[in-house]
């Protein structure tokens, strides 16, 4: 028992280079930034964030608990636009790594409070974004690939180690996201012998990129059934991720499965399939920021040393070509 406890304490006390977390910060920040700029593009700040009497969709001031933003500041179109632009600024600073310690929690606080007026406009993916921002708020995600690092340490990737636990939590978030999604898929459409879930989802006029009626009624129907089975299996397979991480972390322990998994890079294959799955759903369906927000967490699944090795390989291959 004491050994397990020591392992647990030691696990969350580890340190590593800050590049994995920095990549998550940059990618997630970009997704949020683009999404918030869409609100500007469509002139939606007032309908989404102003009270009803000022042109909003929600009677936010009549609710039993008025959110802090609307108690602390004068509610109206000015506040709606002001809060949005501050959030955009915080997202930009998050991407650039400028004042990261302030920018990330500020962005989280604003996204959380701005989600309250019109709950249906706040999707599951917004919750995932906030989960990740909460973890990043307590991390040193600005220690690398940031203006902070450039100003304070004169290097984009300074020689400092940051706590690993935020990266572990973000990795676990991916496991929870996929596994829970798999476990919740108990509708018969997801299960054999039906397997028509993707077919039905793609035909939903709210989500299909085009009207797939004619296209999917042919042999492609069976392709969607196969992909339904793959999706369901792949989501459940996320349960194996912690094992893959442990195997990669302890290659010296040996064992045939561990050695084989590390040699063929099962982890990378899982992430590659995930990337293809998300890109595929993005190309065929209108899912907003979902695919990109989820994939922005992928760097957390890899140790920074592995990412550095991958980077060196890519650069090494590109260099002779250049």
């Amino acid at each position: 028992m004491m050994r397990l406890l020591r392992w647990w304490v030691g696990l969350w006390d580890r340190r590593e280079a800050g590049t994995s977390l920095a990549l998550v910060r940059i990618l997630l920040g970009m997704v949020v930034l683009i999404d918030l700029l869409q609100i500007v593009r469509f002139d939606l700040a007032v309908p989404f964030f102003a009270p009803l009497e000022h042109g909003g969709l929600a009677a936010i001031l009549d609710r039993p608990t008025v959110p802090w933003l609307y108690r602390w500041f004068e509610p109206g179109p000015g506040l709606a636009w002001g809060a949005l632009w501050v959030a955009i600024g915080a997202a930009a600073c998050t991407v650039l790594g400028l004042g990261t310690r302030v920018a990330v929690p500020l962005l989280l606080a604003l996204l959380a409070v701005l989600s309250l007026p019109v709950p249906p406009a706040d999707r599951g993916i917004d919750m995932l974004v906030r989960n990740a921002l909460l973890v990043l708020s307590f991390s040193r995600c600005g220690a690398a690939l940031s203006l902070d690092a450039l100003v304070l340490r004169r290097r984009l990737v300074p020689d400092v180690l940051v706590p690993s636990w935020p990266r572990y939590l973000l990795g676990l978030q991916l496991v929870v996201l996929y596994t829970a999604a798999g476990m919740n898929k108990v509708a018969t459409l997801w299960l054999p012998p039906d397997w028509s879930a993707l077919f039905v989802a793609m035909r939903d006029p709210a989500f299909g990129r085009i009207d797939y009626t004619a296209l999917l009624d042919g042999p492609l129907f069976h392709l969607t059934r196969a992909l339904t089975a793959v999706t369901w299996t792949w989501e459940w397979a996320a349960l194996v991720l912690p094992l893959l991480w442990w195997w990669r972390d302890t290659p010296d322990r040996g064992g045939r499965l561990r050695t084989w998994s590390n040699r063929v890079n099962l982890l990378w294959w899982y992430l590659l399939i995930g990337g293809l799955f998300h890109l595929g759903t993005h190309l065929t369906m209108r899912l907003g920021i979902f695919p990109f927000a989820v994939m922005s967490l992928y760097p957390a699944a890899a140790h920074p040393d592995e990412l550095a090795r991958l980077w060196r390989r890519v650069v090494g291959r590109l260099r002779p070509a250049v």
Binding site: L108, L111, A112, V113, S115, L116, D122, G124, D126, M127, R130, N131, L134, V176, L177, Y178, A180, A181, N184, K185, V186, A187, L189, W190, A197, L198, V200, A201, D204, E235
Partner: peptide, 15 residues
């Protein structure tokens, strides 16, 4: 914090 964990990802596609 607007955080939580409830993931379906098209758990019930609507015919």
């Amino acid at each position: 914090t607007g955080t939580g964990q409830s993931w379906g990802l098209f758990a019930y596609p609507d015919p």
